[in-house]
Design a binder for these strands. Structure first.
Lengths: 196, 196
DNA sequence: CTGGTATTAGTACCAAGTGCTAAAAAAACT
DNA sequence: AGTTTTTTTAGCACTTGGTACTAATACCAG
């Protein structure tokens, strides 16, 4: 009899969150209680059963994947996109993205979000970053919601290049900006013929 | 009886690939055969049952999520460092770091390695990236071992800035280079508050 | 001692299967 | 056609990881 029911349920929630693939039986033996107790706990906490949990994880993944192209490879969640024009993504900064010491987000996460978005906005099979200049304007903290906007500025069809401006904000304040020069295979663009 | 067994099995594989969440019963009615036939087909094609399929999708997702951008102190392994002077790290590019489509490493991983190294080489409590210009010189593939060298070029004590050049190579060929402007607290003059 | 909460036990049942056997149907041969 | 082979169905027992529900027991407090 370790601790109170409350404490067990707290740990239970944590454990399952941490690893949704765990069965009631495993949980029972882990906490030294009966399977029924675990079931009761799950009910009280309205945590679904193993299969449902797994299905949720899978479905989540699948949704994103099904949504056309390489959206699943994006850091942050794309919430709006007009191919070859603009795109918007959200990225919630969590504890794991920041330096422990000062709670400031590591630069490469912001870069990753911006870079991903630059790749995603390009309407092409292959888009690679060639160059980028970025500025980390203001520190981002855990808990911040970073909204990143990518705008296609320019296309050079001869050199297969696309130039993209990216700005990230938190509460309407710019925290990061960058210019990305992207390489693309084709000049395919259904609705426009930008060349410059 | 639509078509041959072969044809049905081809379609079956396709259907399941397309939507792993489908049950044998649904498949049976879709193809106008009995559930047993579907089971037989799955066996011959060694397609796992629904639950296993879902678990696979979920597990895959989970892996990716966890691995998406390692939050460890440094991306890549530091193999040599002289604080405030130079540092060297190794990063082995794995499948999870590349675009599935073309096997080319995603830019932000190279950036992350470089950025981490730039942070690490600075002998200070707090080091933040202020700006960076980077060039992705040559695509990096899964299996490549990226060796990244950071060299401290310059220090401006008044502005609490340090300038670092970073070059990444694979087999002695430059694949990435960048300049990083870093902010640091100490070194000369204390400054605890971050201003940009 | 009486209550109330917490825990455990036990039963029936479900979904979506596996594994196995056997029979019926269809197709292929000679 | 007659026989062999392949393909398809059917049926039953059993498995996992549960739900739903009932009943018993344990424990702690007033």
């Amino acid at each position: 009899m370790k601790r109170t029911k409350k404490e067990r349920q707290r740990l239970l929630t944590e454990t399952i969150e941490d690893n949704p693939f765990v069965t009631d039986e495993q949980l029972a033996s882990q906490f030294g209680v009966s399977v029924q107790t675990i079931r009761l706990d799950r009910m009280e906490l309205s945590i679904p059963e193993l299969r449902e949990r797994i299905k949720d994880v899978a479905a989540q993944n699948y949704e994103n994947e099904v949504k056309s192209l390489p959206l699943d490879e994006v850091i942050g969640e794309i919430i709006d996109i007009e191919l070859d024009q603009r795109a918007l993504s959200i990225f919630d900064v969590k504890d794991e993205h920041v330096f422990q010491r000062n709670g400031i987000a590591r630069g490469h996460h912001l870069f990753a979000q911006a870079n991903s978005l630059a790749v995603a906005v390009i309407n092409d099979e292959l888009a690679l970053t060639v160059k980028s200049n970025v500025v980390f304007v203001k520190p981002v903290k855990a808990g911040d919601r970073v909204i990143t906007k990518a705008i296609v500025r320019n296309r050079n069809s001869e050199k297969n290049r696309t130039y993209i401006d990216v700005v990230s904000t938190v509460n309407n304040e710019t925290v990061f900006k960058g210019e990305f020069e992207m390489y693309r295979t084709k000049g395919s663009g259904d609705n426009n013929e930008v060349s410059n």
